[in-house]
Structure formats: C-alpha cells, structure tokens
C-alpha cells in the first residue's frame, strides 16, 4: 500500500513537470504565460509539501501572481508574441538538448551521493533561537544570523528597480495608460480588497516574529495591493513625488546601512545586534524592508508603464 503522502508528492511533482513542459514548449506565448502562472500555483503546493510555509506564502504572491503580471504586461508590448518568434535551428536544438541532458544526469548522479538523512543546521538554529530577537526560525536567519545576506538582497532589489526606472525615464515613445478604463465593478472590488490587503500584510509582518510570514511576504503582498489600486486608477505610488519615492525605495538598504554603521561605530561587529533592544531593531528593519519591497514591486510592474506626462485621455 503506497502511502497517501507519496501519492500527493508524486502528483504535485508530475503536475510541476507537465506545467513546465507546457509553458516552455507551447508555440503560443500567451498560453505559455497562462501555464507559467499555473506552474507558480503548483510550486506553492510543492513548498507546502516540503514544509516550507514561508516559501509558499512568497511563491503564492510572486510566482503565481506578480511574475505572471510582469510577463503579461511585457508580452503586450513586445512583438515577438507569436509567429515572429523563430524556431531554433536543429543544430542548436540538438546541442542544447545534449548539454541539458548531461547536466541533468550529472545532477542526478550528485543527488544519489547525497545522504538521505542529514543533520543540517536545523538543530543549530533551534538552539540559537532563544538568543535571537524573534521566535521564528526563518525570520531569525534572515534578520539575525544572516542579516548580511538580507542587506545585499535589498541592495539587489534597489538595483533592479533603478534599472527599470532609468529605462523608463529615457523612453520617448507614447506610453500606454496603464490603468483599466474605468470599470465600476473593478473599482468596487479594489475598494473592498484594498483594506483587506493592507490589514493582511500588516498581519503577515507581525506574524513573522513568531510564525511563517515576515517582511518579504508582507511587502510583496502590499505591493500587489498597490498594483490593484493603480489598475483601478487610484494613483498612489505613481503620484508620489519622485524624491519621496527614491527615499522610500531605498528605505531597506538605508536601514541596514545605518544600523551596520552605528554598530561598527559602537565597536561591535558588522550587524552584530546588541542584546537589549534587538527586537525593536529587528521589527524596525522589517517595517523598512516591507515598505521598500512593496514600493519596489509596484515600481517594477507599473514603472515600465508609467506615464511621463499628466494622464492623457483614452481614445
């Protein structure tokens, strides 16, 4: 009798592979994006099976939502949507198949070498958890043990959003109005959803101190809410003064930089949090990260479509 768990795992795995195949090899790019969105949803289920609820939260918002939104938006503009896309030459295809198959075989060989049971760092984290400012393992890794990684992650996000905004600033083409032409039903939905999103992302931020959740999940969700508002024509982020937007986008990096500078001046190690007040510091950092992640997400999606001039009327 095969266990129920195994059936579940294998179903999720098979669905993932099928969805990946479909989204990679469907000739029609639009269908491919639809499959990719479904792929993100099933990825979230895979994270659930791997007991990684933090990742499931992030994937539900990013993989299944925001990446799909970005792709749909770009596909609208770029002409290579179908037909015009060239199929690869058979030589290229053969080589790529061989390379990919070789890498795959090597990885499987490596996988077979991996011991099926390993201690990892779970024990170490659990032991050190009382020493940190928070009670949730993933959050303590992100903002305490490995805060340096998170520092640089916020810097990467800032870099990406700078890329998008700079590119947008140098476009002289007509920018298509981004919001949906006024639909009362949509505005109604946004009106109802926006407060839910706001409260819920606050809840996720708070939950991060002791349960799955945290700055990134909260920020991404808040960003999704901001995008919904922009779509309904309620301009929040795109109406922000440029200077304020810049500051808010760099709030996460600035927070980390300020903290590490202060700590270094105080004679402590880089990002070595003081025992007293560590919790306050971590929560303040989380809020800063969540705000800049949210604005980054909105800018990444809407930024490529921002209007340079005051809104022009739809034809």
């Amino acid at each position: 009798m095969i266990g129920l768990e195994v059936v579940f795992d294998v179903s999720v795995a098979v669905l993932l592979v099928v969805l990946a195949l479909e989204s990679l090899y469907t000739p029609n790019l639009f269908t491919s994006i639809a499959f990719f969105i479904a792929f993100g949803l099933v990825m979230a289920l895979a994270w659930v099976r791997l007991q990684a609820p933090d990742l499931a939260l992030a994937e539900a918002a990013v993989g299944a939502g925001l990446t799909g939104v970005l792709l749909l938006d770009a596909a609208r503009e770029i002409a290579a949507v179908r037909g015009v896309e060239r199929t690869p030459r058979s030589m290229v295809r053969l080589t790529s198949l061989l390379v990919a198959a070789g890498v795959g075989v090597a990885l499987v060989a490596a996988l077979l070498e991996v011991p099926p049971r390993a201690a990892g760092l779970a024990e170490a984290v659990r032991e050190a958890l009382p020493l940190t400012a928070v009670e949730h393992g993933v959050t303590s890794v992100l903002l305490d043990f490995r805060a340096l990684d998170t520092f640089f992650e916020t810097a990467v996000l800032l870099l990406a959003v700078i890329t998008v905004l700079v590119l947008q600033a140098h476009q002289h083409v007509r920018i298509i109005p981004w919001e949906l032409s006024a639909s009362p039903v949509l505005s109604g939905l946004v009106g109802l959803l926006a407060p839910v999103v706001l409260v819920f992302s606050g809840y996720l931020l708070w939950a991060g101190t002791h349960a799955p959740g945290g700055a990134f999940q909260a920020g991404v969700l808040l960003g999704a809410g901001g995008i919904l508002l922009e779509l309904a024509g309620v301009h929040t982020v795109s109406r922000l003064p440029r200077r304020a937007l810049r500051w808010l986008l760099s709030l996460g990096v600035a927070g980390f930089a300020l903290l590490s500078g202060t700590l270094l001046l105080a004679g402590r190690g880089l990002l070595e949090l003081p025992g007293a007040g560590a919790r306050t510091i971590v929560i303040a950092l989380e809020i800063a990260i969540a705000v800049s992640v949210a604005l980054t997400v909105v800018s990444l999606v809407v930024g490529s479509n921002l209007r340079l001039e005051p809104p022009e009327q739809e034809p």
Partner: peptide, 17 residues
C-alpha cells in the same frame, strides 16, 4: 470566512470582466 469572501469577490469580478 475571510478567505471565502475574498475568493467569492474576486471570482465573481473575474467572471464579469
């Protein structure tokens, strides 16, 4: 209940749109 309300709202809006 919240999950159900949100799903119902977005489902019906999606259907309408």
């Amino acid at each position: 209940a919240l999950v159900w309300i949100v799903a119902a709202l977005s489902g019906s809006t999606a259907c309408y749109l």
